[in-house]
Design a binder for these strands. Structure first.
Lengths: 243, 243
DNA sequence: ACCTGAACACCGTTCAAGT
DNA sequence: ACCTGAACACCGTTCAAGT
């Protein structure tokens, strides 16, 4: 059957849009476009109109594939979570695996800074949210934690991961707004501001803040993330029934 | 001096606006109005135009007292923090005092749910942010923690408090959006949704989520908050140099 | 110094009409 | 079923003009 749909067009023939056909939209295309805008220009740049523009159409066209902006954000979030790789669960090494999982999430959130803003307070119903949930919940339960407590621990760990990522994304937004382009430059300016501000505080009301300014700004985002993560992991370990 | 400004008008004379005078705006008035809208109608209802409307004027008038919406949000945030009461620091009871502090913050954030959205990633420069900072920083340092580490611990604790409050505020927003008015009703509907959804999951891929649904929804917001707080406090305690 | 109306450049979503 | 243009009801911020 020459010309059948199953036979691909020869590669040397330039693909062209059938003149009759309308734009070829799809949910996947919309999600990928949204994510591209999010990564390149940040949360505030992501609008339905902007996505539509990128796809050479009007905003109304998107609503055939996505019920609202909120749904688009959820889809983008789950799309990003698909980049998280999980190992085979090994309950005897639960702490190590939970740490690796957290660092893996941290890495993915760093690559897609602003996606965290779409994450909080959603019921995790996306394919990949469920994957994460099954992994951490199962790990804690199989390691011996009562399910009711495992649920609390999982919930708080997730909140920490997303909260930290969210804070990071706000810093990115500020960096963009201030016109700086390198994180270094932003970070230094940020630190300089803090130092100057705290040094000028009245010493009698804020003795500790004033006397230990240098320590106050010690530690970058990675240090802070890791410190908090270890606090939580140690707390969980202390509650894990002894084997 | 009859008619002097220092003499109040007699109470039986109805106060009236001097016909000549323009609106009597002030930063404080704008902040209080913004907070009232935030508490009553939520974050999404708080716009410069809405605040202006409430004050019988146009949005442009606000910009004489507030540089941008972002500054207004920061001012509202610090205004809310003014409601947080701190005890005299007693380093020998640092853990208890830190717990009380966290619960006090939690209480205030519950009364002003949506204010947490204005809080993340700001340099704490407001009067009251500084008060909180001096309290927790001083408490940890005086209890014997090296300042560099005290800074990390304080930072992570604050992130937890604000992150939890932020998540709570998103739940409020969803409740409002769904037209429900009582938190109970919302909470029950929310739980019912989760249970139904997880029960329908394919058991071979999500065995733990499916088998322990009831445990998954165990614990309300207070339980979850307290559990995470104790995780952090225990982690900090484990790092506190022995006396 | 403070306030204002009008305008600018945006939003998310709906809806009747087209194919 | 999918796509579209036009419209609705909003945004934050600026600016020249008023007092």
């Amino acid at each position: 059957m020459v010309g059948s749909k199953d036979v691909p067009a020869p590669p040397w023939r330039k693909p062209r849009r059938p003149p009759q056909a309308k734009r070829q939209l799809s949910q996947e295309l919309i999600v990928e476009t949204g994510l591209r805008i999010l990564d390149a220009e940040g949360f505030d740049a992501l609008s339905m109109r902007r996505v539509a523009q990128e796809l050479d159409t009007g905003p109304a066209s998107l609503y055939a594939h996505v019920s609202a902006k909120e749904e688009l954000l959820e889809l983008i979030y789950d799309r990003v979570l698909s980049e998280v790789r999980l190992p085979e669960p090994d309950p005897s090494r639960w702490k190590e695996q939970l740490r690796d999982y957290a660092q893996e999430m941290h890495r993915v959130f760093r690559d897609h800074a602003d996606v965290a803003r779409a994450a909080l307070a959603n019921i995790p119903t996306g394919e990949n949210s469920l994957r994460m949930g099954e992994f951490t919940y199962g790990l804690l339960i199989e390691a011996g934690m009562p399910p009711g407590e495992a649920s609390l621990a999982m919930d708080r760990l997730t909140l920490y991961l997303v909260g930290d990522a969210y804070e990071g994304s706000l810093h990115w937004a500020r960096m963009r707004a201030s016109g700086m382009s390198s994180p270094q430059e932003y970070f230094e300016a940020f630190v300089a501001q803090i130092v100057a501000y705290y040094r000028a505080l009245p010493v009698e009301r804020f003795p500790h803040l004033r006397d230990h300014v240098n320590d106050l700004i010690a530690g970058d985002g990675e240090d802070r993330f890791t410190y908090g993560l270890e606090l939580l992991l140690d707390g969980i370990e202390a509650r894990m029934p002894k084997t």
